[in-house]
Nucleic acid binder design. Sequence first.
RNA 1: GACCCCGUCGUUCAGUGGUUAGGACACCGGGUUUUCAUCCCGGCAACGGGGGUUCGACUCCCCUCGGGGUUACCA
Length: 472
Amino acid sequence: MPDTILRFAPSPTGGFHVGNARTALFNYLYAKHYGATLLLRVEDTDRARYTDDSLKTILDGLSWLGIASDGEPVFQSQNEEAHKKAVEQLLASGNAYYAYETPEEIDVMRKEALAAKRRVHYNRELTAEQVAAFEAEGRAKVVRFRVPDGDTVWTDKIRGVQRWGNVEIEDFVVARSDGSPVYNLAVAVDDHNMGVTLVLRGADHLSNTPKQIMLFDALGWDVPEYGHSTLILGNDGSKLSKRHGATTVTEYQEQGFLPETLFNFLALLGWSSGDEREVFSHDELVETFSLEGMHTRDTVFDLKKLTWLNGEQVRLRPVDQIVEDAIPIWVSEGWISEGDVDGRREELTQIATLLQPRLNTLDDLRKTGYFFNEPENYDEKALKKHWKTDTPERLAAYIDRLEALDSFAEEDVEGVTRTLAGELNMSASKLIHPTRLGLCGVGFGPGLFELMAVLGQETCLRRLKKLLEVAG
RNA sequence: GACCCCGUCGUUCAGUGGUUAGGACACCGGGUUUUCAUCCCGGCAACGGGGGUUCGACUCCCCUCGGGGUUACCA
């Protein structure tokens, strides 16, 4: 049994759409799970829309996600000779012909075809005189594939037997009037030349498959196997596009989602393990993946679930990794500088430890300025709720106690807090809430005592005194 | 319009002839906690409809309805 060769064939004409990323992921998982080869082919034949930037975005996205292909990428534009040769072969064997219809004529033919409920019939049998006349006229000609009679059938690895009546497919263009190859031809030729044996792609390619199979047949080549996964939908049920919000890997990366989250989430969009597990690591996914788990039902991209999953993945990361994630964000906020990092690593690690359980996205790290700066104002709601008439007096007493502490470790701070509360015959929360407000400016955050220990005695005292001044 | 794909809670996955139709996200309660988050407990909520087949259908078949995709000298 020959090795399975897969390919991922993005077209660098824009961002790295999550749907494409998912296709890449399924190919990758298949390759890793079943021990196949995954090739990367860059479909750069649309010169008008191609950009280097887009190619870089896709390549960066793949490596960010941890999706590696085997060997060097193939650039479709460099296979033009092979494409042309195939077109000539098709012409020579009578499987393709020159068509001279003008766009205007095609327009009319389409309307007729629509009215007659059939496909467009192009003139397949031009006489030598007609050809000479068109040439003399200087009419442009394209090469069209002569779609044979009968059905095109394949057994889809995901959907089972698929049958298309060829009458539903009009003679499609394989080479433009400038001689350049059109998509389906280029794909068939490249897949053949790269030795591709299994094409795994989205359901949006379902209608291309019979065309490509016919091309393989006409060229006398072995037809690869095909498997078509689902479509990713927006929340209104239509194919996920810009109007639904973020659609590219890059955007999610920028919003603070982790690569392992996308990797995990994308896999769940069109595949499931069969059991109830949903949180997977890279290795678990490779191990658990199977073609049998692939779905045929389109799935909606649920941002809420992605966010939840990201929280799960954040909690799975080692805290040192969270520190690394946080550093560039805190630097960009101006809270720390690159130079600080090495000297403050222990402190930063403590902060990350407190933050990790309550992070949904890395972006949440941008709301943690109180670890680095004094609050500039105090949340009004929290102030109203926790600032009573006797609060200043109690806080003053609390400050005295804190000032007297020799050790500012978490348990010492907690001890002195509870002791004072006991002496004043009140609940510790009467101290805790105003203190949090003074330290953070907001009414929520990590456990107060661990927070205070990380901030340190001096900082806590300074901030509490300021609060007393401003609010008291 | 034609062709194709799909049809279980709002979303998602499981269920493959006999189940109180299960899990997750979201949502709503409750517990834990100094707050938030985490965590724990509980609740809400679905087999689109109609015919068959069968002793028995969410599961099989047909029709219908609904949603989506494709219908290019884009990829």
